[in-house]
């Protein structure tokens, strides 16, 4: 199957690298930034299409890596052209848009890249919880705190394009908690922002319908280059702890030197288990074989619904109930 990438920024690069790991050849790319698209095409030795329609005419699957606000029109056009869609998270900026995209994709496959579900430690913890190893989940703590994206023009800063940090970053853990322990009933959140600039930090307490409670922290708050994630999953019969503070499988010691900080913090996994490759391999195989996706567009929509409830709580200062 032929694949085209729409969007040649940070996530487009990550996806292109992952596709090459899997051994799937890309048909080409497209971007609203022609200079960036051209360089991307040359770097990956793929075609740079003149426009989206041309890309769609030459592929079976479009892999959408553009800013969130553009997901809906790109997905609707692809679905109309009968092309399968792989799309970065969040699905959209509103529940209505997300639902419209799901409805439009009834005739094609539609996959949302909630990549956290493909990190081996998160998968492993999910499997242990599902196997009953911690009993009934009680208190779930999740952390995802990074630094302010270093590209000053980054679209992440623009709420109208990204939905902001809560929708763009924290959605991973909202989805994960829902995957672990089911539907969310109620959320309450607090946020503190820098007096100037985009630095911000959010804490959310969630009550799940199962009774379990969760604390999720997210932010662009640490010094550049510092990205801490972690989970602490406790239940009636056990506990699972993991933190990115733990040493990786390869630790090196060199004379310190000034290092460039990646413009956006992306969590890394181990050495040989790139979660983005695992995610795209899964999506690709499911589209090829017709098998169901492990994470559905409806899951992505629910994760968005939680994110938006958190934003509402931040705006009103009150707890927000979910349907």
């Amino acid at each position: 199957m032929r694949i085209g990438i729409a969007g040649t920024g940070t996530m487009g690069e990550v996806h292109a690298a992952a596709w090459s790991t899997i051994g799937v050849e890309l048909a080409g790319c497209i971007s609203s930034n022609p200079t960036q698209a051209k360089a991307f095409g040359q770097r990956h030795k793929i075609r740079t299409f003149a426009n989206y329609d041309e890309l769609l005419n030459n592929v079976d699957i479009v892999d959408i890596c553009t800013p969130t606000a553009t997901h809906k029109p790109l997905v609707l056009t692809a679905a109309k052209a009968g092309k399968h869609v792989i799309c970065e998270k969040p699905i959209a900026l509103t529940v209505e848009d997300g639902q419209a995209m799901i409805d439009a994709c009834q005739g094609v496959r539609f996959f949302i890249g909630l990549v956290l579900r493909f990190f081996s430690h998160y998968r492993s913890a999910k499997q242990l919880v599902a196997a009953g190893r911690i009993g009934k989940p009680g208190v779930l703590r999740l952390r995802r705190v990074s630094y302010v994206p270093q590209n000053p023009e980054a679209w992440y800063f623009n709420d109208a394009l990204s939905g902001g940090m809560v929708v763009d970053l924290m959605i991973h853990d909202f989805d994960y908690v829902r995957w672990l322990a089911g539907q969310v009933q109620r959320v309450f959140a607090l946020k503190t922002q820098a007096d100037s600039g985009a630095a911000q930090y959010v804490q959310v307490v969630l009550r799940l319908k199962s009774g379990a409670i969760a604390l999720i922290e997210g932010g662009w708050a640490y010094p550049p280059g510092v990205f801490r994630t972690g989970f602490d999953l406790s239940g009636t019969d056990g506990l699972i702890e993991w933190s990115s503070d733990q040493p990786p499988p390869l630790v090196t010691f060199f004379t310190p030197k000034l290092e460039e900080t990646a413009s956006v913090g992306l969590p890394t996994s181990g050495l040989a288990d790139d979660p983005f490759a695992a995610e795209l391999r899964h999506a690709y195989q499911c589209i090829q074989t017709g098998a169901p996706f492990e994470v559905t567009a409806e899951d992505a929509l629910e994760a968005l619904r939680i994110s938006l409830a958190v934003k509402e709580s931040l705006e009103t200062g009150k707890p927000v109930k979910l349907p």
Binding site: G138, V139, T192, D232, S234, L239
Partner: peptide
């Protein structure tokens, strides 16, 4: 104005 969380759970086995 400082925000803080407290986890007081008897959550360690």
């Amino acid at each position: 104005g400082i925000q803080a969380s407290i986890d007081c759970s008897w959550s360690r086995p």
